[in-house]
Design a protein around this nucleic acid. Structure first.
Lengths: 161, 161
DNA sequence: AATAGAACGATATACTATACCGCACCTATG
DNA sequence: CATAGGTGCGGTATAGTATATCGTTCTATT
């Protein structure tokens, strides 16, 4: 099965992770005529700071500290932009948001959520997509959106427990 | 692939659907020493009324009408009981709840959510479970809970569109 | 410079969920 | 019988998440 995931659970050069993602998003915006405004960029950076999900109000607190907005609509508008354009994802189970680290427009990955360290990895798996498509088509259902959120323990936390 | 789903998208004897589920839950409670109190039973019935997800406050309005409770904790306590014991499920994507129509304790099905008619079907698929397990184990992740919610169109609504 | 659309600030409100306290009831046990 | 522990529930209050709306400002383009 063809499976790939973000390196959230492994030691990696996270500075590079951040810079390459911000650069990629900036380029995508330029190309697609989208505005990566200061608020939007800052929210993306906040989400990228760790591979963890942040709630809208945590982001809002950080925006306030930066003088970039003080009311809920500010952060929700930025999140709408980021999620709508595939630069971030909402984790339904947590009512929280993560930056997207995969260079692929409008994909719909599975998320691995570690309950130990709260890290989140994004996994793209052909086998999983196929299984969902098969499950749906078995009863004549036409798939439009998928939410796949898997909770458990990442390798490090599994050992520690 | 072994796949089975609830008949939510098909014409079926829904009265029978309701009665058999209420009976099954009552039996399970008796067997496991759980109390199917009036509030809990009523919430289950409300959820069973249609194969659709209901929000906590919709349920609360109905409970009020029946004189069975008037404040949020009443309905959330009932939902905690039903979900905790596998008699109902929370649909994370909708922040809403559905009755469980599958006779299997503590399972973790996929949900098919029709955006046309709002019906929800529960699908048990071995292939899907395997794919999730494979995706997770590919990066050493230990699965504890799964959320799989598939949005799209049921057979009838797909034709109508 | 004029204009149209996008983004933003600000206020208000809606929707979802939980913490906490005290009472009533049951029943197990001394 | 007394009482202690557990469970469920009513009620108050509050926490947490999200959106509607309106008027202004910014930006790209004419």
């Amino acid at each position: 099965m063809n499976t790939s995931e973000t390196p959230s659970f492994e030691r990696h050069d996270h500075e590079r992770c951040i810079h390459s993602t911000v650069g990629r998003v900036a380029a995508a915006c330029a190309e697609r005529g989208l505005q990566l405004t200061p608020v939007r960029k800052r929210v993306l950076e906040l989400l990228l700071d760790q591979h963890k999900a942040l709630g809208a109000y945590e982001l809002l607190d950080a925006l306030r500290a930066d003088g970039l907005g003080s009311q809920p609509p500010a952060v929700y508008r930025a999140l709408e932009f980021l999620v709508g354009n595939g630069f971030a994802h909402k984790i339904e189970r947590l009512n929280a948001f993560v930056a997207c680290c995969i260079d692929e427009t409008q994909h719909s990955p599975a998320f691995l959520i570690c309950r130990g360290c709260n890290a989140i990895a994004e996994a793209e798996s052909d086998g999983l997509k196929t299984a969902i498509e098969d499950t749906a088509s078995a009863c004549g259902f036409v798939v439009e959106q998928r939410v796949v959120e898997i909770e458990g323990l990442c390798p490090q936390c599994a050992i520690a427990q």
